[in-house]
Design a protein around this nucleic acid. Structure first.
Length: 345
DNA sequence: AGTTTCACAAACAGAGGTTA
DNA sequence: TAACCTCTGTTTGTGAAACT
């Protein structure tokens, strides 16, 4: 039955064409399967049918058939098939934009319905980058929970690039993520200004050497964050390596701060970490600070939220509380491991 | 290598019949 | 009349083979 109602024969007169289009549009809006749009959204995000299949936990064949059914419903090609090249047709771009919006609205609907069930119990879903080191941040959650004990909180850890994507789709209340440049449609508030420096671990040959210069490091292998690929949130680290003429290779990677640190301590190579996050490891002799003295680069963590998402009461309370809380502290205070006194206005 | 097509199977929904 | 069962058609998935 699926696409039997889609009329593909060309009609001769313009009047008939208009009637036909109106009828067809009506039928599409009545019958369009949201699952197909969701599948198409993932295909476009992954830029691959097999990639989408992995993400959706179905076979590549199932995704291919779903795409065909969607194309039949619209009576248009949505993706141009080329050898090893993926591109959306203009119709595909239109469908993607619509699917993106619908996905956001459905996510908000789920949140609103959940809120409506229990008027006094809200729920917030916050996406956070791996391992945020800040006593101010810890204190925020303590304060927030005391003030709003019935608000249910979900904190989900994921790479910054994923966080930005999901917040743009209105798929969560807010995100705390590294950003090189501010993404479209998102509001932001600067949270942490982190300075990255080079370190090696206790089993590395450079550990404990205090008279090192940059030349001593150029042949060393690297431990890196997955996100320091060019164009990603930590790409300044890669640019630094290229500009300074490092000849070593990246021998170990992880998207998680603690795992990068573990690999550094294990002696896989040298690598960058936020200075303020490893003071304890330096004090206890697990890590060793390397040149350059001034560090490698800065990377800022921002609180991100969608500019025109519908928000529940709990979500509004969270955003207001977070912004108010961090504004009480200077950027330097936000990096401290122990909660400082609130700054004087 | 990635994608499409085909045959087949499982799950599901709706229609219709039966029974208490 | 509600509850249950059976049958049938549809949808959507898998796996294999063919295609680009």
């Amino acid at each position: 039955m699926g696409a039997a109602w889609v009329l593909l024969e060309p009609l001769s007169s313009e009047r008939h064409e208009n009637c036909h289009m109106k009828e067809k549009t009506q039928r599409i809006s009545d019958r369009l399967d949201w699952n197909l749009l969701r599948t198409f959204l993932v295909i476009a995000q992954e830029k691959s049918i097999s990639g989408a299949a992995v993400k959706l936990h179905v076979t590549q064949s199932a995704v291919s058939q779903a795409l065909r059914r969607l194309e039949e419903q619209f009576g248009r090609r949505l993706i141009e098939r080329h050898h090893s090249r993926f591109c959306l047709t203009p119709a595909g771009e239109e469908v993607l934009a619509a699917a993106d919006t619908i996905y956001g609205n459905v996510a908000q609907l789920a949140s609103s319905v959940s809120d409506a069930d229990e008027q006094t119990v809200g729920r917030i879903h916050v996406l956070v980058a791996s391992r945020i080191h800040s006593a101010v941040y810890d204190a925020f959650w303590a304060t927030f929970h005391r003030a709003h004990p019935r608000v249910e909180v979900e904190l989900e850890v994921m790479p910054s690039s994923e966080i930005v994507k999901i917040i743009q789709q209105k798929g969560a209340t807010a995100g705390i993520a590294l950003c090189k440049q501010m993404p479209k449609r998102l509001e932001h508030s600067l949270f942490l200004q982190q300075r990255y420096s080079l370190f090696c671990g206790q089993y590395h040959s450079l550990f404990g050497k205090s008279d090192l210069t940059m030349d001593d490091l150029l042949g060393e292998n690297f431990v890196s964050f997955t996100s320091d690929a060019l164009g990603d949130s930590l790409s300044p680290l890669t640019i630094f390596r290229d500009q300074r003429g490092f000849s070593g290779t990246v021998v170990a990677t992880s998207s998680h701060h603690d795992e990068v640190k573990r690999l550094l301590v294990a002696g896989f190579g040298i690598g960058c970490l936020p200075e303020h996050s490893v003071q304890h490891d330096l004090d206890e002799g697990r890590l060793w600070r390397l040149p350059p003295e001034e560090g490698v680069c800065s990377a800022n963590l921002y609180l991100l939220w969608h500019e025109d998402a519908h928000r529940t009461a709990a979500e509004r309370v969270f955003l207001d509380a977070f912004k108010t809380h961090i504004e009480q502290y200077t950027p330097a205070q936000r990096l401290l491991p122990i909660l400082p006194q609130v700054r004087q206005q």
